[in-house]
Amino acid sequence: MRPFSYERVATPAEAASAAARTQGAKFIAGGTNLLDLMKLEIEAPTHLIDVNGIGLDRIEPTPEGGLRIGALVRNTDLAADKRVRKDYALLSRALLAGASGQLRNKATTAGNLLQRTRCPYFYDTNQPCNKRKPGSGCAAIGGYSRQLGVIGTSEACIATYPGDMAVALRALDATVETVKPDGSTRAIPIADFHRLPGDTPHIDTVLEPGELITAATLPAPVGGTHVYHKVRDRASYAFALVSVGAIVQRDGSGRVALGGIAPKPWRVEAAEAALPRGAKAVAEGLLAGAKPTGDNAFKLTLVERTLGAVLAQTRG
């Protein structure tokens, strides 16, 4: 690990201004992904700003009937929250499908959104990777790509966004709230939060330097049956090959978001109109324009079949 200086801050505004003051600074909360990457020197911040003392650890009702989840709410606490379990079961299910008990006890809502890809070539510093070292090339294309992306990828990068929580947030139409170093705030729809790689795959999100996530906000509950189905190589504690998060209403209408296949949680609202016609029709709409590799073309079939299983489950 490279040396770094360290400070604790007491308010979100202090955190954002500390980040603006120090070049090469990063926020740290749970640290479960950042410290892993710092040990490998894939991340090498010169300064860490510990944001664990700034509050933002509550889940509060919003005037619109939804929930505002503080950036520092731990994954365990979010999944176990009674209101989330009852009205946003998809979110509980997605969180519980991810990581291990130890990690969920540390990992935060904001940190989970910002976790970086698990592409093996991003992790292997002996390999070229445009996400880790812009302009160096992509060893995943033409390499071992079984786990990697099939849609939304580019000539520069085929890495996936690895998380589960954000897939649920995408289906739930969540909003990410932030504060910038100048004190201004903004609300970013989750659909716009993660970027497609294009020719700048090293930039994962639309956050500006020093911009701090303060909360994720859920709109009022939409009802329906919530299912999160994660297909992976082990029954527990593994990243998704394909995951399907769905909310299906009694009349067969609903929403679907996918994980494990794209650089961001993948949802195509137009494809959801086909839900009453079944998994095949929806999968066609979701995966239009997919460019799988020889290693991961199986994911296209797997999406359709997983979606089929999910729809069968929602019908009871």
Binding site: R2, P3, Q23, E41, I42, E43, A44
Partner: peptide, 10 residues
Amino acid sequence: RAEIAPASQP
């Protein structure tokens, strides 16, 4: 070596 390490590592 860190590939994104800034010049001024403390």
